[in-house]
Each structure stands twice: as C-alpha cells, then as structure tokens.
Design a protein around this nucleic acid. Sequence first.
DNA 1: CGGCGTTTTGAGAGAGCTCAACATCGGTGG
DNA 2: CCACCGATGTTGAGCTCTCTCAAAACGCCG
Lengths: 202, 202
Amino acid sequence: MSDRDWLPAHVRAAAKKRTLKAGETLFRLGDKTEGFYEVVTGRVRMSRVDRSDHELVLFVAGPGETIAEASLYAPAYHCDAIAGSDAQVLLYPKRAVLAAFARDATAAQAFTAMLARQVMNLRTRIEQRNIRSARERLRHFLILNAGADGRSVALRGTLKELAAELGLTHEALYRTLAALERAGEIRRGGGRIMLLRSRKTV
Amino acid sequence: MSDRDWLPAHVRAAAKKRTLKAGETLFRLGDKTEGFYEVVTGRVRMSRVDRSDHELVLFVAGPGETIAEASLYAPAYHCDAIAGSDAQVLLYPKRAVLAAFARDATAAQAFTAMLARQVMNLRTRIEQRNIRSARERLRHFLILNAGADGRSVALRGTLKELAAELGLTHEALYRTLAALERAGEIRRGGGRIMLLRSRKTV
DNA sequence: CGGCGTTTTGAGAGAGCTCAACATCGGTGG
DNA sequence: CCACCGATGTTGAGCTCTCTCAAAACGCCG
C-alpha cells in the first residue's frame, strides 16, 4: 500500500522532516495548505469536529502512509491532523511538488497512477469490510495477498497488526486461523501462511 | 462521490457507450486495456477468480461510478469486470484521455485532484466501516454528510440503498433510525434527516 | 531468571443478522 | 375510481457470531 517510488528524487529531497509529540496538531481545518505529508513513525489521525465538540475520525495514518494528497489542489485543509502518538512526518511542499509535476510530465503521471492504484486498493478493502464472517474475510485477504504462486502469504507484522488491518479483534483472528488450520485449509509457519486446498476442490 | 466534471468535454464526447446483459463480461484479467469505464445504469462487479474457481469480488460499481482508472497506466487489466445486472457503461478510450492530458495540463491536474479526493473519501469510508455499532456508524454518516448548515442530510436514494452504503442490513438501519428518532436525536421527513441535538450537549 | 508483549484458549453477553409477517406507497389496468 | 401488485418501509423474535473480559502459555530480551 505504500509505494513512494512515484516521487522524483529531487522532490523527495525537498521534504521537510517534522517531529510531533502525542496530541500535537499537524494542521487544522482551514489552515492554508503547505503540502501533503508522509508518516514516518507513529500515527497521525485526520478528523473533523462537529458542532458538539465530538471528534469524528476520518482516517488514521501509520508509517509509510501519506495524508492530505488532495491538499495539493486545495487552498486550505479540509480537516484536522493530530498526532495520535509521538510521530515523525515528512512534509512534501506543495510548491516544490507541483513545480516538479509541471516540469516533468512523467512524474505527474506517476503520481496520478499511484493514486489510481490506491483507489483500487481502497475499494477492495471496503469490499473486504463488507464481509461479516471472520472466516470469509480472512480468506478474502489470504487469496488477495497470496504471492505470485498463489500458495502462501508472507506476514509483514504481528498477527495483532493483521487483525487490526482486517478489522477483527486479535482473539477472533487467532480463533479463525486455528479453525482454518484444523480444517486443513491453511498451514502456518515461519511468518507465512500456506494455502492448502480450498473448500470446493471441484 | 461521483463528480465527473473533471473530464474535458471533448473527452467525454469521445466516450463510447456499451450495453451489457446481466452476466456479460466487460473485460477479463489480462485483456489489453482499452481505457476506463463509467457505469451509467446497472451494476458491474470487478472480481478475480482464484485457482479453485471461486470468484473474489473486489468492488461493485453502480451508476455514476468509474472503474479501472488505473488501466490508463497499465497495459492489461488486473481483474475481471462482469455485469451484475443489465447495464450501460461508457468507455473512455485510453488513447483519447491520455492525449487530452498531454495537451491540457489542467485536465490532467483535474483528474489527479479527483483521484486524490476519492482516496480521501474512500479512506473515510473505511474508517466508518471500522465502527461496529450501527448507531455510531449512522451518526458518523449523518454528521459527515450534513449539509453546509450541519443540520440536515438529504437522502439521495431509498433507505435500503443507504443501508447498503453503510454496510448494514436494511432492518438494522430502520431500527436504528427509529431509535434515534425516539431518542429525539433526529427527525425524518421529506427525504431528509434533520439532526436535532447531539447526545452530549456539553 | 524475570518481565513484557504476543499468542492462545475459555466463557459469557450483546448486537446485528436472518427469517417472517405486516404496513405503506406508487403505479397499472380494469 | 378502485383493486391489485411490487417494492419499500417497519416491527417482532430468535440465533449466531463476534466482541469483551479473563487467564494462561509462549517467546524474546535484558
């Protein structure tokens, strides 16, 4: 989900690092846009506050994710960004980025292509969230993330993190994994999940 | 979610209409990319088929939604697209679109900006799906979609459609609406939902 | 060896889903 | 104008599944 190979090196070099304490504000709704950010460490949440002072979380960004890409084309930010933990972020200055895109059509196209891919991925993820059953949701994830051979999935982090990504509690994920393994559908080991046979071997 | 004002008129004019019967294939994984599509009527689902012939739905597009934007920058489609019902779609030919972008930087930028907005919206939607409680999810939707005044939401379709958009069964939505209305939190009428007071009037 | 976080399993409760019946509304045709 | 019909809207009852709270085994690192 986080391929940032789409930014020309000289733009990446123009990025400014910023360090945030937990709870610190990165920008607020209405602030003039400086550019978009990439989260390096920690977490930053985008949110809006309704008239009754309730915070409405729009998105929580973790390491490797970018936020406020749309700010490149807007004069002001459309929501608040607040560090959920101590965090480091990179600011890609609007001016530098847009200038690079104007000069280098390939760079602009790479950026657009990246966004198009993201749209795809996000839509897929929403579809996944529509699946209620933990088992089916996990299957959806496994098949979608199986390596080229379609037979095994490499786990990038802990199972707890995977549970969060899937929108399940870690207990539910453990149980479902155990059930699938008992059913002979998968096998686990060495940070990987091997897909054995599927249920309908038609 | 469906603002297509980002395509220059002459590109929109170049679109080719295509009519599909339910179950008909629009394109298949590996097909050479012709361009991206917009669904006019009916529904088209993007899906992939795993080795056991199970269809894995990635995304279901309805009227006004576009699919396969990423195909502009890829030589072949990455999944299948199949009409879920009788449907009409518009094909925006890759060649014409890319040519327009090359000629007209503003058009290209508008497209990119649109994608960036979509990424935002989709992320917000995923965040919404993380909310388990039907009541909280509905509140999230209402506050987010309240008009400029922040006091009422215009319903675009039927409540059943809204339920689907929220990822709830229509029964659950009806009940939740009734409960919120009973609690004096909202009022319904004339295709609108009025937000009254919020629970914590601090 | 002693913590600390992940992984695992258990028991119970709550919330939404499923199935079902019924009301309501708009359009259609007699 | 009214009866009929299909789709939307509404409410009820029971069930399933995940979440929550709890406790314990495991693995890693100082």
